[in-house]
Amino acid sequence: MASAASPTIRARRLRRELRRLRDLRGLTVDDVARSVGWHRAKVIRIEQGHSGIAADGLRKLLDLYDASSEERDALTSLARQARQKGWWSVYGDVLPDDYVGFEAEAESISTFQSLHIPGLLQTEEYARAIIHAGRTTASKDEVDRVIAARQARKILLTRDAPPKLWIILDEAAVRRVVGGAKIMSVQLGRIIEACQLPAVEVQVLPFAAGAHASMGGAFTILDYAEPALDPAIVYVDNDTNTLLLEEEQQVSRYKLVFDHLRAKALDPDQSADFLVRISAELQD
Score class of each variant (00 low, 15 high):
4 A>K: 14
4 A>H: 11
7 P>T: 07
8 T>A: 02
8 T>M: 02
8 T>L: 03
15 R>Y: 09
15 R>M: 09
18 L>D: 04
22 R>P: 02
22 R>H: 06
23 D>N: 12
23 D>M: 08
29 V>W: 11
31 D>H: 03
34 R>I: 07
36 V>Y: 00
36 V>S: 03
39 H>P: 10
44 I>P: 02
46 I>C: 04
47 E>F: 10
48 Q>N: 13
50 H>K: 15
52 G>C: 01
53 I>E: 02
56 D>Y: 05
68 S>H: 06
84 Q>R: 13
89 S>A: 11
90 V>C: 05
94 V>M: 04
96 P>K: 05
97 D>Y: 14
99 Y>M: 07
100 V>C: 00
104 A>M: 06
104 A>W: 08
104 A>K: 07
105 E>G: 15
110 S>Q: 14
112 F>S: 06
114 S>W: 09
115 L>C: 09
121 L>H: 11
122 Q>L: 05
124 E>C: 04
125 E>Q: 12
128 R>Y: 05
128 R>H: 08
133 A>N: 03
134 G>S: 08
143 V>G: 03
145 R>L: 13
145 R>W: 10
147 I>G: 00
150 R>E: 04
151 Q>F: 00
152 A>E: 12
153 R>Y: 03
155 I>K: 12
155 I>A: 14
156 L>N: 02
156 L>E: 01
156 L>I: 06
157 L>K: 01
164 K>S: 13
169 L>P: 08
169 L>Q: 10
173 A>G: 00
177 V>T: 07
181 A>Q: 07
182 K>L: 04
187 Q>T: 02
189 G>W: 02
193 E>T: 15
197 L>I: 10
203 Q>P: 01
206 P>F: 06
207 F>Y: 12
207 F>D: 09
208 A>T: 14
213 A>D: 07
215 M>T: 13
219 F>M: 00
221 I>P: 02
224 Y>S: 03
227 P>R: 02
228 A>C: 08
230 D>V: 03
232 A>P: 08
233 I>A: 03
235 Y>E: 06
255 K>Q: 15
257 V>R: 06
259 D>G: 14
261 L>M: 08
265 A>N: 08
277 R>P: 06
282 L>K: 09
284 D>S: 15
